[in-house]
Design a protein around this nucleic acid. Sequence first.
DNA 1: CACTCTACCTGTGCGC
DNA 2: TGCGCACAGGTAGAGT
Length: 270
Amino acid sequence: MPELPEVESVVRSLRDGHPSLIGSRIRSVELAWPGVLAQQPLAVDPAELEGCCFASIRRLGKYLIFSLNCQGKQPRYLVVHLRMTGRLFLVPDSAAVERHTRLALILDHGLALCFDDPRKFGRVWLVNDPETVTGGIGPDALTVGLDEFALRLAGYRRQLKPLLLDQSFIAGIGNIYADESLYRAGLHPLTNSADLLPDGMRRLHAAIRSVLGEAVEAGGANIDGVFKAGSFVVNVYGREGAPCRICGTAISKIRVGQRGTHFCGYCQTL
DNA sequence: CACTCTACCTGTGCGC
DNA sequence: TGCGCACAGGTAGAGT
């Protein structure tokens, strides 16, 4: 499940890989499943992308933001959210549309940018201003400072697990990294944010930064037999019943706000 | 405001 | 072997 580190890794491979997406020109757009386009009515017709060149790629929370130079016309933006099962990658244009391909941008130099998504949860926006898509989310979880983190936290009175998943609080954390961050901070997922002492806030902030930072460097998570983006090894997610790597207690799994939530009942106190 | 539930989807893995 | 079903979860939106 792509969260911040996995999305960052997609950005890096498209931007820094060989070949790179940067500088590529769009020759045509293959909309294999129209439902992939999120907004209605359309702000930008897909056909208007023909002739545009990829100028930059960045990430905000779990959103990928591609800026396009359009031959003297105003720049366009392609915004992508991978949700659960979306994948974005470059292939030879002859192999662009496979079974689960929802959108393919046929590029010059024999390449295609492919958006695959078996579950059809992922979405794409074509807009003149990416803020119209990402405007509602909070600061990026990887870079938010302690002062801003603590200030925002003070505006809520909620269980920590759902709060970390709330993209308008901070952006980029999903179910895996929420559980991993709370474990590293030694905080129980049901702890109420209003009960956090300054030291708990500091620990949570530091845990989020270090977990996400390490996962970015590792190219994403490696979850035994389920999900393999990179080499970041999880401590609690998907390890129900397995021994805590710190104290040996069996990892617990409960449901919090309809989500599977994993924690160590000894290391993470309420 | 905080929470709960549902809908959107389909591949996977389980029990029978 | 094959069928049915629970499950996975990011987000929006409606309801309590």
